[in-house]
Simulated scan of single mutants.
Amino acid sequence: MRRFGKVIGLRPERREEYLRLHAEVWPAVLATLTACNLRNHSIFLAGEQLFSYVEYVGDDYAADMARMAADPATREWWQLTDPCRRRTADAVPGEWWTPMREVFHHD
């Protein structure tokens, strides 16, 4: 299992829309997350910044992320959520979320 932490900015004028969307995530999007071997996914809010935590339990992360990106329901979901967010200054080119380096973990 691999753990991922990522950050992204939240546009203040789209805050309520983003929170409303995530209060009722579409079942098809949740099913795709599960099918792509993502577990224990959480998004936290601090001011105007979002922090995502997820555990990956598969064998081919790149293939699973490509499968998720190809899913029609997920693509439609992203069309709604992407305008609510803004990349951080440290964002990887071509990526929305900025990866974080894990510096401590305790079971």
Results as ranks from 00 to 15, higher is better:
2 R>A: 03
78 W>I: 00
92 V>A: 15
37 N>G: 07
24 E>N: 13
85 R>V: 01
9 G>H: 03
2 R>G: 04
29 V>P: 06
107 D>P: 08
26 W>T: 02
82 D>F: 06
39 R>H: 03
94 G>W: 04
58 G>L: 07
50 L>Y: 02
69 A>N: 12
41 H>D: 06
44 F>M: 02
59 D>E: 13
42 S>F: 12
53 Y>K: 08
76 E>G: 00
10 L>A: 12
95 E>M: 01
23 A>C: 05
48 E>T: 06
80 L>A: 11
63 A>C: 10
11 R>S: 05
26 W>Q: 12
85 R>I: 03
91 A>L: 10
47 G>Y: 08
51 F>K: 00
69 A>H: 11
39 R>E: 01
90 D>H: 04
44 F>Y: 13
25 V>I: 15
95 E>Q: 06
96 W>P: 00
93 P>E: 13
79 Q>I: 01
25 V>R: 15
11 R>T: 04
72 P>M: 14
44 F>C: 02
87 R>P: 02
52 S>C: 07
104 F>L: 15
33 L>R: 07
42 S>T: 09
12 P>I: 05
21 L>D: 08
66 A>F: 06
3 R>C: 04
2 R>D: 03
64 D>N: 12
54 V>Q: 05
79 Q>S: 11
5 G>F: 12
41 H>F: 05
18 Y>M: 10
84 C>A: 11
75 R>G: 03
40 N>Y: 12
27 P>D: 15
97 W>Y: 07
66 A>C: 06
27 P>A: 15
74 T>M: 14
